[in-house]
């Protein structure tokens, strides 16, 4: 079996060399295909991270009436904080709200100058364990009997950022459907090119194959070198794709970091996830190569 592995690889490499223009064509197609897949995966990953980030920042703000009785405010907080969906409830007093407002607008002194007294209401900030429960939780808050006694207008004074997120979901869904279409097309083209390369390799060796059959070489003994060739081409395409994606990644991420906007968005760049992506690309290349040559073997090599 050890001798066989050496034999198979040698045969596969000989085929590759004899037909290197075509083989490189197939390799290039696989590489292109995987670069696009990799880019899409990367963008999807970033998008997902971004959504997660936005979601984790989702909070419900309940703005309170200035004249709400203190006991009722406390009662509201005690109720909400005990719900299983709720992670944390913070009380922001009028004074703290003003402080924060002054910090936020310290670059716009004219806004602060026009400020008379403290127009800002006190509020509760409610954080949730799972951002997707936000709408249900808001509804539940509105149904509370106590709410009308602490909030002036329950339809306007309870705010959350959900509309924004659901729009993001729609966009990412559209983008991933389009990307999926492109990826399928590229996979198809790669498969066709690999199949064609292997078909020509089979054709070039038909005399040897005929003799091999005649003297009783087993079917797999005849097939495996061609399968190896496809796998080598796929793997090579994967390696090239990884190399190019790596270069692009380094170049763009650096410039983006320079522009600071990624830092601003605070998206974690997980090295581990990136490595997994590269591995997936390499395996996809190998898989495309194997399937492409398997198709050629089924169609053009009758054993």
């Amino acid at each position: 079996m050890k001798i066989n592995a050496v034999y198979y690889s040698k045969e596969a490499l000989t085929n590759f060399r004899k037909n290197w223009v075509l083989s490189m064509g197939a390799v290039t197609a696989v590489a292109l295909c995987l670069i696009v897949i990799g880019a899409i995966m990367f963008i999807a990953y970033m998008g997902n991270q971004f959504i997660n980030k936005v979601e984790s920042q989702i909070e419900i703000e309940i703005f309170l009436k200035d004249n709400a009785p203190y006991g009722q405010i406390e009662a509201l907080q005690n109720q909400i904080v005990n719900w299983s969906a709720v992670k944390k409830v913070n009380y922001v007093s009028k004074e703290n709200a003003l402080k924060k407002f002054k910090i936020d607008f310290k670059d716009n002194p004219e806004v602060l100058q026009n400020l008379q007294g403290n127009p800002l209401p006190s509020s509760f900030r409610v954080w949730l364990k799972n951002p997707r429960t936000v709408e249900a939780t808001v509804k539940r808050i509105k149904r509370l009997s106590i709410i009308d006694q602490v909030v002036a207008d329950k339809n306007n004074d309870i705010k959350y950022g959900s509309q924004y997120v659901s729009k993001l979901f729609v966009i990412t869904r559209g983008v991933s459907i389009a990307a999926g279409g492109i990826v399928l097309l590229l996979i198809f083209v790669s498969l066709v090119l690999i199949t064609n390369t292997i078909r020509l390799a089979i054709f070039a060796r038909r005399k040897e194959i005929g003799i091999m059959k005649l003297v009783g070489a087993s079917n797999w003994f005849i097939r495996v070198p061609f399968l190896f060739e496809g796998v080598i081409e796929g793997a090579l395409g994967g390696a090239i794709a990884i190399l190019i994606l790596g270069i692009i990644y380094r170049a763009t991420i650096k410039s983006i970091m320079g522009g600071k906007w990624l830092v601003f968005m605070r998206i974690p760049l997980d090295q581990g996830a990136f490595m997994v992506m590269l591995l997936v690309l390499l395996l996809s290349g190998i898989l495309i190569g194997a399937i492409g040559s398997a198709i050629a073997l089924r169609r053009f090599l009758k054993v």
Partner: peptide, 18 residues
């Protein structure tokens, strides 16, 4: 089938040599 053919030697008019 290959194992059948291992038990049958075969010679042709055109030799079929590589």
């Amino acid at each position: 089938i290959p194992f059948l053919r291992r038990n049958i030697g075969c010679v042709f008019q055109d030799f079929k040599l590589l």
